[in-house]
């Protein structure tokens, strides 16, 4: 579904991604982990061109999205993204947040979009919040709404950029369980996270990134029980106290 070839990204002289190759197949749940500053978020953000690669190619459903002729806005409609800081639109109510893109892109009428939004809100148990502004919601509620806002576009793939890192501990569970549900329904997912439990239980494949390179790409079971790379072992020894 997504194929990344020889991707390099520099910020000025700072090399953030160095010749990265990854492939994500339909239905896969790929978790990207690594120390902070390793380039994992940048890798994810390159997938929908929120960061423009310095060199390399990214193919989405066979189309080279780094090609200047490619209409990236059309591609992004098929790729949902969830951010660490939710990025809900604070000046719009919950239901307006969800329906804005489908309506403004003329994909659905206002009525259809609202019906769809209500179904999505009902699913996450927040239908009663449809007319409130994001400022009144808890972090966990905001993130779940951000997720269904992406789902309202019926994406083929969902990208998660540290979706639980800005949450209070007791709210992490509700977001992760929604993500697990999505995974079970067969959504293709790429998740940058520090939640090792989620990585272990949900991922099909685990990508370990450090200093702009992919050091290991393996099954989570294999990675947690038998890490091959020196850096992986060191990383695991630091994060695994809580699994």
């Amino acid at each position: 579904m997504i194929e990344i070839k020889n991707l390099t990204k520099k910020f000025g002289k700072n090399m953030v991604l160095n010749n990265v190759n990854v492939k994500i197949n339909k239905g896969e749940k790929v978790v990207i982990i690594g120390p902070s500053g390793s380039g994992k978020s940048t890798l994810l953000r390159c997938m929908n061109l929120l960061e423009t690669p310095t060199s390399g190619n990214i193919f989405f459903e066979g189309q080279d999205i780094t090609d200047k002729k490619c209409d990236i806005n059309k591609i992004r409609q098929k790729m949902g993204m969830v951010f660490q800081n939710f990025n809900l639109f604070p000046h719009l109510t919950v239901i307006e947040n969800i329906t804005l893109a489908p309506i403004k892109l003329n994909l659905q009428t206002k009525g259809e979009a609202e019906e769809n939004a209500k179904k999505l809100l009902e699913r996450i148990g927040l239908l009663d919040k449809k007319n409130v502004y994001p400022g009144k919601l808890s972090g966990g509620q905001k993130q779940r709404i951000a997720i269904v806002r992406s789902l309202a576009m019926n994406p083929d793939i969902m990208l998660f950029d540290e979706p639980t890192s800005a949450l209070d501990p007791e709210m992490i569970g509700e977001v992760l369980s929604l993500m697990k549900d999505l995974a079970q329904e067969g959504m293709t997912m790429v998740v940058v996270t520090h939640e090792m439990g989620f990585a272990k239980n949900v991922a099909n494949r685990l990508v370990f990134v450090d200093q702009g390179q992919i050091l290991e790409e393996t099954s989570p079971q294999e990675f947690f029980s038998n890490p091959k790379h020196e850096r992986s072992k060191e990383f695991l020894s630091k994060v695994l106290y809580n699994v």
Partner: peptide, 14 residues
């Protein structure tokens, strides 16, 4: 916040 522009773009809005 820059995230607002990014959120809009990620939904496919230009």
């Amino acid at each position: 916040d820059k995230g607002q522009m990014e959120a809009g773009l990620s939904l496919g809005l230009n």
